[in-house]
Write a protein that binds this DNA or RNA. Structure first.
Length: 552
RNA sequence: UGGGGCGUCGCCAAGUGGCAAGGCAGCGGGUUUUGAUCCCGCCAUUCGGAGGUUCGAAUCCUCCCGCCCCAGCCA
């Protein structure tokens, strides 16, 4: 592990396991259930598990925890793999499936039955709940708890053969119905589900529960560190019970950490799905969604997401990270890696009254990094600038174009506004200005400096583009707590701009290319809808704006 | 009011008995052909609270307070 990495309890404990020879190599795993799209919270788990394996020279598996076929599908299996790879990770070996271990799990269940440590229970779900007791009251033994090994074995084998209906019986561990830890009150190991499984088809009418399967899956794969979230901490005694009572040669070490939450975000699958179902967003990968595919389509670089996950740290305390921290990581990454370009959002015609010839300009593609090279731009007498960049008059804080005042056209000449035309309503129709300098880069000979720099595009050469400007989906920082999601929605989370004009060079932009439109923000060519004939850019994130007085 | 966790700056988070890192946000200032970037400076005499142990405590002990998780045949 490199020295500049912040220490956290996970690294400390793994290092200790290595130092004390408790393990000789690190094997972790990212074990999603394929029942939805991955989101920013999963990204944290991915960076933790793959990151730890990488740091300690170990390996990380991708394993689908597919023990509940009714909620899972191939679509999610595909999207999850794509998202993990996009984030920059490659799992060790083949993709693994819990379902590939069903036979072994079944054998182990049989073993518990033989040992008198598991029994088939015929209680209905309601009855089972009543027998379970409450948080403060111990449970009662199931009347089926005393079944003989022979009977339990017979019943369980017949469960597998499909002789019983869904929900009719379950296999339970025989532990302690009075345990203060509810997870130990004879937890269910297998339930009957006559459902086709996306991997095993109709092979199984019974499926193991997560609690019975998960730890054993880790055992089978030789996982040394089973890293999971806090809510599984009190399941650990149960997992240990399985390990102690099953003929397994290996004992993974489970370590829990707090899941990542960010402000202004919801990640519960139910709520994400609600946003889709109510057409508040356009799908799992809508650029406003906190899904990996949504962030990707928004233009958030994988590296920024990785850095963010590292920067927020890993601890055991429930916390909500300010989403501004994610945005900061995105800006930091994009500032260094996005080429610059110009885009006029709300075009206002500007005529250069004294420009005789179109002027060829060599404009750097990055203000600092020379390796980005230059591009040629042509400055014509007829331009578009942004409406916001012109005022007939303004105070000295307005560092843009004002009649009688000067600005520099980005990469080009210094101009001075002379006059403007207005319509009957007083709205400015076009602006007339004269060039003060003749050579790009020159300062005015009279020493009167321009007030600022504004972006522009050539009126005849620029190409129209659709720009989608995004804002946060929610108006409150903790939408997850809202009783009604629709009540905390930001109604203006998407603004589609169809008047924008981008510089001609952008016809070569490929889907997912990100640019900084100077003075505005970062924009990504939409992964699916961008075409060179009809550019579509999504606003990734605006430039940081510390201008205190927007009214100049 | 059973069990398991967690409480260090507005938000994250190092620190594990020796004189409170860092990031984000914020606030000043400098540079600048992006009101961006970059650079400099400021930002916890104090670690949920109260006692105690100690030469010395965020770190150890005691009690208290607050928050989170668990009663799916979900994961």
């Amino acid at each position: 592990m490199s020295a500049e990495m912040r220490s956290n309890f996970l690294r400390t404990q793994i290092q200790d396991d290595l130092d004390t020879d408790r393990v000789s190599a690190v094997v972790t795993r990212f074990p999603p259930e394929p029942n939805g799209f991955l989101h920013i919270g999963h990204a944290k788990s991915i960076t933790v598990n793959f990151g730890l394996a990488e740091e300690f020279g170990g390996q990380c598996h991708l394993r689908f925890d597919d023990t509940n076929p009714e909620k899972e599908s191939q679509e999610f299996i595909d999207s999850i793999q794509e998202d993990v790879r996009w984030l920059g990770y490659e799992w060790h070996g083949e993709v693994r499936y819990a379902s590939a271990y069903f036979e072994q799990l079944y054998e182990w269940a049989l073993h518990l039955i033989e040992q008198g440590l598991a029994y088939v229970c015929d209680l209905s779900p309601d009855e089972a709940r009543a027998y379970r007791g409450t948080l403060t009251k111990p449970g009662q033994d199931s009347p089926y708890r005393a079944r003989s090994v022979v009977e339990n074995r017979d019943l369980f084998v017949r469960m597998r053969l499909g002789e019983f209906n869904d929900g009719e019986r379950v296999l339970r561990a025989k532990i302690d119905m009075a345990s203060p830890n509810i997870n130990l009150r004879d937890p269910i190991l297998y339930r009957i589900r006559h459902a086709d499984h996306h991997q095993t088809g109709s092979d199984w009418p019974i499926y193991p529960t997560y609690d019975f399967a998960h730890g054993q899956e880790d055992v089978i794969e030789g996982i040394t560190h089973s890293i999971c979230t806090l809510e599984f901490e009190d399941h650990r005694p149960l997992y240990d019970w399985f390990i102690e009572n099953l003929p397994v040669p290996h004992r993974p070490r489970q370590i829990e950490f707090a899941r990542l939450k960010t402000s202004y975000t919801v990640t519960s699958k139910r709520k994400l799905k609600q946003l889709i179902d109510e057409a508040i967003v356009e799908g799992w990968d809508d650029p406003r969604m906190p899904t990996i595919s949504g962030l990707r389509r928004r233009g958030y670089p994988a590296a920024a997401i990785r850095h963010f996950c590292e920067e927020v740290g890993t601890s055991r305390s429930d916390s909500v990270v300010d989403v501004a921290m994610l945005e900061s990581a995105v800006r930091d990454e994009l500032n260094r890696h996005a080429p610059r370009a110009m885009c006029v959002m709300r075009p206002l015609r500007l005529t250069l009254t004294n420009l005789a010839e179109p002027l060829k300009l060599q404009v750097p593609n990055h203000p600092v990094d020379q390796s980005f090279g230059h591009r040629e731009l042509v400055l014509d007498a007829e331009l578009f600038i942004d409406e916001d960049d012109f005022r007939e008059e303004a105070n000295k804080h307005f560092k843009r174009l004002v009649i009688g005042k000067r600005v520099r056209l980005r990469g080009g000449l210094v101009i001075e506004a002379e006059s403007c035309d207005k319509d009957a309503d007083g709205a400015v129709q076009c602006v007339y200005a004269k060039c003060i300098t003749a050579v790009p880069g020159d300062d005015p000979a009279d020493g009167v400096k321009p007030k600022g720099v504004i972006h522009w595009v050539s009126a005849d050469r620029a190409i129209p583009a659709t720009i989608r400007e995004y804002d946060r989906l929610f108006s409150v920082s903790d939408p997850g707590k809202a009783e009604d999601l629709s009540a905390v929605l930001n109604q203006d989370s998407l603004t589609t701009n169809t008047t924008a004009m981008v510089e001609p060079g952008l016809v070569t932009a490929e889907p997912e290319d990100v640019y900084q439109f100077e003075r505005q923000g970062y924009f990504v060519a939409d992964r699916y809808e961008h075409h060179s004939e009809r550019p579509v850019f999504n606003m990734t994130i605006g430039l940081r704006d510390t201008w205190s007085n927007p009214n100049g």
